[in-house]
Design a protein around this nucleic acid. Structure first.
Length: 438
RNA sequence: GGAGAGUUGGCAGAGUGGUCGAAUGCGGCAGUCUUGAAAACUGUUGACGGGUUAAACCGUCCGGGGGUUCGAAUCCCUCACUCUCCGCCA
């Protein structure tokens, strides 16, 4: 959520900045609502002040044993007026807050304008795609051996966009997870956490998935009645996490850290669940786009002055995994039209996939500045002012495990259809140097 | 699943209808003392919104939502969570 004061006082500036994302702000409606809000709030607060002072007078009069009936008559019609004023205020504030909750973060000055991924700008390219003296296969073909990747059986068990990894494939997948976690904890200074894969509405609201992107999520229906209104008000609705960013970042929701606790650097392996609504027909084959996939996530909670450096650091941490795996990749900065809702700036890392003859996203690293922090009320006590201030939150994949698996398979494939194990993974594979040999 | 007890400021913890945003302690901050530090002592210290050059001032907040009342941390309803005991269970 943006700072209401900023939207109120610098509406033109905010609208201009949102145009970088191709988002149009209804300035007229917003300033209208703001005027109404001010008037309604004033009226309601004045009435409350009257009520408070009158009630206090009644208390005092009673204490002295005086007759309070005249005072009671005086406030007789106050209740109705107050209720009316509050109803009006509530309705204005509800509309305002729904607009505010649906408004994306302000893009950083360095974010280029643009419509979609075509307009993203390459920052650097690292490693050269290998030359192969045989016809390259994609990961689906490579995984056919020993049914190492089995999509048919998965669709029988569940449905489309699920996969079974079998034998060496499952082992390699697990090796990648261990390797990534070890690298982040031992070399990059992160602490490993393990978190719930089911979260409530408040958490999803905190990181920005709700209220706007409900259709991307899997919502759980418990055995009992979930339409219970009281339970919904208690935010008891449960959802499967679309990314570990949600539970991990929400660790600091509604809390005030002391400044020496920052930065908080956490890494987390989790399963992620996405409904992929709206992506029918895209990447329907293979592991690229699944309803369920695994990811190692990095999250940092930092003071505002550190967040832009942290974004660069986190990007390099994700890149380091690819470097160690010796996979060719490039880093792009997302343009305004492609950047996520909560992010002020995002770097995508795209790995080279010989089977697709293309670079494909394998990590996305974002600085969400104070956008999520404001929704979550995640604060730290500033040493300078002694007052609570909003933290900055960042998250990034380090990396998407399934896609990394694809990249290893396709980049390390050999003429006979087997796949060499990258050196750094050999210890995690119990010394095995080649898989899918027959 | 059953029974009971709880949820209060950064933390701990009082407070059962009327100057209670809330005692007290810890922590934090400032000062006294000290070469310096510690200890001791003194003072100060909630968040959010509105308002002001700055203050003053006004409003809201005692787990969430609703209700009773002129007035609610305090009474009622409801939901969530925590703890203890019983049952079940990986």
């Amino acid at each position: 959520m943006l700072d209401q004061k900023l939207v109120r006082n610098e509406l033109e500036f905010v609208a201009e900045r949102q145009r970088i994302r191709n988002v149009e702000i209804d300035q007229t409606r917003l300033s209208e609502l703001e005027t109404q809000r001010k008037a309604a709030q004033k009226r309601s607060e004045d009435l409350q002040a009257t009520r408070n002072s009158r009630s206090k007078a009644i208390g005092q009069a009673k204490g002295k044993g005086e007759d309070v009936q005249p005072l009671l008559d005086e406030v007789a019609q106050l209740g109705g007026q107050l209720k009316e004023a509050e109803t009006e205020l509530n309705s204005v504030q509800e509309e305002l807050s729904s607009i505010m909750l649906s408004m994306p973060n302000l893009a950083h000055e360095s974010v280029p304008p643009g419509k979609d991924e075509e307009d993203n700008i390459e920052v650097r390219k690292v490693g050269e795609p290998r030359a192969y003296d045989f016809d390259v296969k994609d990961h689906i073909d490579l995984g056919e051996r020993n049914a190492a990747l089995d999509f048919e059986t998965a669709s029988k068990i569940t449905g489309s966009r699920f996969a079974i990894m079998h034998g060496e494939m499952a082992q390699l997948h697990r090796a990648l997870v261990q390797f990534m976690l070890d690298t982040h904890t031992l070399e990059h200074g992160y602490t490993e956490v393990n978190v719930p894969h089911i979260v409530n509405r408040d958490s999803l609201k905190g990181t920005g998935q709700l209220p706007k992107f409900e259709e991307d999520l899997f919502k759980l229906v418990a055995g009992e009645d979930v339409s219970d209104k009281a339970k919904q008000e208690a935010n008891k609705d449960y959802y499967l996490i679309p990314t570990a960013e949600v539970p991990v970042t929400n660790i600091v929701r509604d809390s005030i850290s002391s400044s020496d606790e920052l930065p908080i650097k956490l890494t987390c392996h989790s399963v992620c669940f996405r409904s992929e609504a709206g992506s029918y027909g895209r990447d329907t084959r293979g592991l690229i786009r699944q309803h369920q996939f695994e990811k190692v996530e990095m999250v940092q909670i930092v003071t505002p002055d550190q967040s832009w450096q942290a974004l660069e650091d986190m990007t390099s941490h994700a890149e380091n995994i690819l470097k160690k795996l010796d996979l060719p990749y490039r880093v792009v900065i997302l343009c305004g039209g492609d950047i996520g809702f909560s992010a002020a700036k995002t770097y995508d890392i795209e790995v080279w996939l010989p089977g697709q003859d293309a670079y494909r996203e394998i990590s996305s690293v974002s600085n969400c500045t104070d956008f999520q922090a404001r929704r979550m009320q995640a604060r730290f006590r500033s040493e300078a002012s002694g007052k609570p201030e909003l933290v900055h939150t960042l998250n990034g994949s380090g990396l998407a495990v399934g896609r990394t698996l694809i990249a290893v398979l396709e980049n390390y494939q050999q003429a006979d259809g087997s796949v060499a194990v990258p050196d750094v993974l050999v210890p995690y594979m119990r010394g095995k140097q080649t898989i899918l040999t027959s």
